[in-house]
Design a protein around this nucleic acid. Structure first.
Lengths: 349, 349
DNA sequence: GGTTGTCATGTTAGCGCCAACATCGGTGGC
DNA sequence: GCCACCGATGTTGGCGCTAACATGACAACC
C-alpha cells in the first residue's frame, strides 16, 4: 500500500470522504477499475462492476470532481454570464439553461453583471476562466460590444440573442419575425400605422425588433412614426406612455416587452385613453402574467425553453468535438398570442 | 528540472494554460513563492512580489482551481438549490445571492428542482455534493420536508424561508409581520374582516403568512373566513378570484403574492366587482411591475437583496469557522407599500 | 501450434497546487 | 561571540483521479 492510514481531517468536524482507493480496497480491485466503473466504461466484467458498485454504495463514495478535473483538464462545468435576472427573459433563459445542463453530467456556474462597463465584463470573464469552466454561455450578446474585450481564445462560447456578426455560435428568437407578426397584426386590424416603444438602444434584441418594425411599416407603405425608447422596465413604459398619450395619432403601439407594455397601458389609462378602445397595444415575451393584465395583453411569445436547450446543445457540441466555434445562428420561432389589448381602430379615428 | 518541455495539448485546439511553474521560471523564484503571491500571503518581499506579479501578467496566468481544490480540500464554491425561477422571489433571491458571492472569491453553482419529489431533491443534493461545494443554500425550506432526506453531514447549509425548526441556519422575511401589516392595513381602513388567498399549503412562507393572517384577525376579534388556496401563479389567483367574487362579504382580500393578486383583480373585474371600490386587495412581494397594475397594487415589500446577503454571510461564516450549523433564524423586516388597490369599504357594504 | 487479436485488469506517472517542513542569512540579546 | 529567533524562500510529498501503457488469460485463425 502506498499510503498508511493516517490522515489529517479534511476540515474541522468533517472526516475525509471515501476515495477511489477506499472503494478499490473494499472491492478487492485496483483504483483504475473503480475509475472505469465510475465513468461507465464498458470494458469491465459484469461481476466486477457489481462488486465495485456495491462497495461504492457501502462507503457512500462520490468522485472528487476537483481531482478528476485536474487529471483530465476538463471541468464538466459551463459558465453563464447574465445581466439583471429581474428581466423576465434572462431569468427564464437561465432556468432553461440550468435545466438542460442538468440532463447531462455538467454543472452550471453563474456570474451576473450589474453594469455594462468594460471593467465589470472583464471581471466576469476572469472569474469564470479562473473558476474553471469548459465553455461559456453569454446570456446577452450586448456583452460582446464591450470594446477591447478579449475572450480567452479557444474557449467555446455561445451567445444568446446574438446576431451572428461575431465569431461565436448564436441562438436567438427570430426578432424580425416576432416584430413583423406584431405589426402585421395591428395593421391587419385596420390601424393606419404602428408606434414603437423600443428597448434600450444598446440591446441587440431591441434593435432587431425596432428594425423589423420599421421594415414592416415601410413594406406596407405606412408612415413611420418616431421611436420612443424605454429600458425594459414598467416604469419606463409608463413614462413613454405619457408621451404617446399626448399624440392623438397613436392608435396602435408595439412595445418591446410586456413590462413596458404594462406601464404603457397604465399611462394611457391615466390619460383617459382606453385600451384597446382608443389604443391597441402589443407586447413581447408573453410573461406568465400577461394573460391577467387589464386588459389581457396581446403579445409575442418567446420560447425560452427552446433557446436554453439549443444554447446548451451547441455549447456541449463545441466542447465535445473541440471544433472551433461556428458563427452559425440558430433561430427560434416566436408566435403571436392574441388577447384583449388589441382591436380595430375606433370609428372616429 | 523535474519535467521536460514536452506536453500533450490540453484539448484540441487549445494550448496548455500557463502554470505556477511557468510563472516561477520566468520570475526566477520557486513555485511556492508564486503560490504565496497568488494567495496574498504577507511573507513575501515586496520586490519579489512585484517580479512575480509581472510574470503572471506577462503569461496571463490564472490559478487552476481544480488543483487548488484538490490540494486544500476546499472548492471555493457554494451551491444553490432552487425551485422554479419564474417565481419572482426565487429569481430575486438567487440574483442577490450571486451578487453577494461575487464580492468574495467564491463562485456559485446552481441546481434547480422541477418537481418536489424525493427523487428530484435527492438528485439535486447528489449533484452538488459530487460537484463539490463547500456549502449549500436552500432557496426554499420546503425542500427539507422531503421525507428521509439525509443531508451530507458536516456540510454547512443555510435555508431561505426556514423557520428554525430544523438544525440549519435560516434566513427569512418576517412573514408574520408582513401578513400582520397587510391585514391591519385593511382593518384600519374599516373593513370588517379580511379574506386570504394563500400560497400552496406545503410552502413554509405561505403557511407563515396564513397563520399570521389568522392570528391578526383573531386578535382583532374579527370573524375568520375560510382560506382559499392558490399555487402562486396569476392563473390560480384568477380561479380563486372567481370564487371570492361570488361571496358578497368579501370586501378585502390579502393575497399571498403579487401574481395571485393580479389574477384575483382580473377575476373580480370580470365579475363586475371594482378594485378598490368594491373589494380591496393587498399583495405580497412588491414585484417591480406591481406599481403599474390597474389599479396599482398595495403590497408587502420583501427585501430580497438583504435576504441573499444574509444567507451568503451566514454560510461563509460557517464555512470559514467550521462551526457546526446554528439553528438561529435571521429575520428580515418587510414593509407595507400602500398604493391604489386598497380603500375604505363601500358605504353600502 | 504459433501468431494475432481481444478483453479485463493492473501499474506507473503525473495533472497544478499547497501544507509542512527545511534552509539560510540577518538581528538582537546577553 | 554565541545562541535564539525571525522572516524570506526553497524542497518534498501528496491531494484523488485518469491516460497510457503493461500484463496475462483466453479465443480464433491459418
Amino acid at each position: 500500500m502506498a499510503q498508511d492510514g493516517r490522515r489529517k481531517p479534511a476540515a474541522a468536524g468533517r472526516t475525509r470522504a471515501p476515495s477511489m482507493a477506499d472503494v478499490a480496497a473494499l472491492a478487492g480491485v485496483s483504483a483504475q477499475t473503480v475509475s472505469r466503473v465510475a465513468n461507465h466504461r464498458t470494458n469491465v466484467d459484469e461481476a466486477t462492476r457489481e462488486r465495485v458498485v456495491n462497495a461504492m454504495r457501502m462507503l457512500g463514495y462520490r468522485p472528487n470532481t476537483a481531482a478528476r478535473a485536474l487529471a483530465t483538464g476538463r471541468f464538466r462545468t459551463i459558465g453563464v454570464i447574465s445581466f439583471d435576472l429581474q428581466a423576465y427573459g434572462n431569468a427564464r433563459t437561465l432556468e432553461s439553461i440550468v435545466s438542460a445542463v442538468q440532463d447531462t453530467d455538467y454543472s452550471v456556474n453563474i456570474v451576473t453583471i450589474k453594469d455594462q462597463t468594460e471593467q465589470a465584463v472583464r471581471e466576469a470573464f476572469e472569474r469564470l476562466t479562473t473558476q474553471a469552466v469548459d465553455g461559456i454561455i453569454l446570456n446577452e450578446a450586448q456583452i460582446l460590444d464591450t470594446p477591447a474585450l478579449r475572450l480567452p481564445s479557444g474557449l467555446p462560447v455561445v451567445v444568446n440573442d446574438g446576431d451572428g456578426t461575431h465569431r461565436h455560435a448564436a441562438v436567438h428568437t427570430d426578432q424580425a419575425e416576432g416584430a413583423r407578426l406584431a405589426v402585421r397584426h395591428l395593421l391587419d386590424l385596420g390601424h393606419r400605422t404602428v408606434h414603437h416603444l423600443a428597448g434600450p438602444q444598446d440591446s441587440h434584441p431591441a434593435r432587431g425588433r425596432a428594425e423589423a418594425w420599421h421594415r414592416t411599416l415601410k413594406d406596407a407603405g405606412c408612415p413611420v412614426p418616431p421611436v420612443v425608447y424605454g429600458d425594459w422596465t414598467a416604469e419606463s413604459g409608463y413614462r413613454a406612455g405619457r408621451e404617446l398619450a399626448a399624440r392623438p395619432d397613436a392608435g396602435a403601439v408595439f412595445a418591446g416587452n410586456d413590462q413596458m407594455a404594462l406601464g404603457l397601458i397604465r399611462a394611457l389609462h391615466d390619460a383617459g385613453r382606453e385600451v384597446p378602445g382608443d389604443v391597441s397595444v402589443v407586447g413581447f415575451d408573453n410573461v406568465a402574467e400577461s394573460g391577467y393584465f387589464l386588459p389581457p395583453l396581446t403579445t409575442v411569445h418567446q420560447d425560452f425553453e427552446e433557446i436554453g436547450r439549443q444554447a446548451v446543445a451547441l455549447l456541449l457540441d463545441q466542447i465535445h468535438t473541440g471544433r472551433p466555434p461556428e458563427a452559425a445562428v440558430t433561430s427560434v420561432a416566436p408566435r403571436l398570442v392574441v388577447r384583449g389589448s388589441t382591436a380595430p381602430p375606433a370609428p372616429g379615428a
